[in-house]
Amino acid sequence: MRAHGVIALLIANSLALASLLIMLSSGLALIYGLRDVINFGHGALYMLGAYLGYSIALIGGFWTALVVSPLLLALLGIALEYLVLRPLRGRSHIEVALVTLGLGIILGQALIFVYGGEARGVDAPPALAGSVRMFGLSYPLYRIFLIAMGLGSCTALALWLRFSTSGLYVRAVSQDPSVARMMGVNADRLSLLVTSLSAAFAGVAGVLAGPYLSVDPGMDVTMIVNCLIIVVIGGTGSIAGAIIAALLFGFVQVAGSVFLPDLAALAPYVLLFVVLLIAPRGIGRGRAPA
């Protein structure tokens, strides 16, 4: 019975972590699919979402933050598309990736300048503050909410990609950009949609991370490194791969901290290099850059 309990907790905790990672890394994979660019500033967007969520929650409460912060991030995503990705589309993908890295550093530093260097705690909203008893175990309600949000956004993403026209176009461009363009798909318009969407997801993840992790100056680097590992494991650009890799990553991270607490920090890297050794292109069907 106790072993069952441990396993259930393990799975629940890894799902909670994976929920955040899925929201962030699927956003990265989506942009990559359309623009062949990895947004190294994605961690900073997540950090901005978290700090905005912190500030808005102080004024209007958690639920307002959960709506407003992603909307503001979506606007920033639109700016990113118009001011960075479009003007630089003739440049090499590496250069654009480096520009996003630079912009991420600027944004992160600006946030530290505004909010200072210390970590901030965010309380879970009263409705989600307690714990629930499930299968004879007590588990924080907030984490269940987190898992629901993660799985919910995952499902929404899958449904959108599978059943909507724009989702079809996104898949088409991701699979073969030149053929999709020849068939009349407007990749720029899609990219606008996808960039703002993935920035908004980063905002959601940031707000959700507040009560679960903490809001601190190093959160952007930690998260972008985790997401990059997931994107590589998943096969660069593969969304399904990213989701599976995020689940795997969450499990390895949580299991590592339970069974090998001394070495847990290295668990994701071990996973990364093991996967690379077996499948250099990752587990999903990613597309090599053009």
Binding site: V225, L228, V232
Partner: peptide, 21 residues
Amino acid sequence: ALIVRTNPLAFMMLTLAAGEM
């Protein structure tokens, strides 16, 4: 030996990951 096989973008991500490791 592990990472030069990948594409340039993945290479960049992997060197970042190895550095953080």
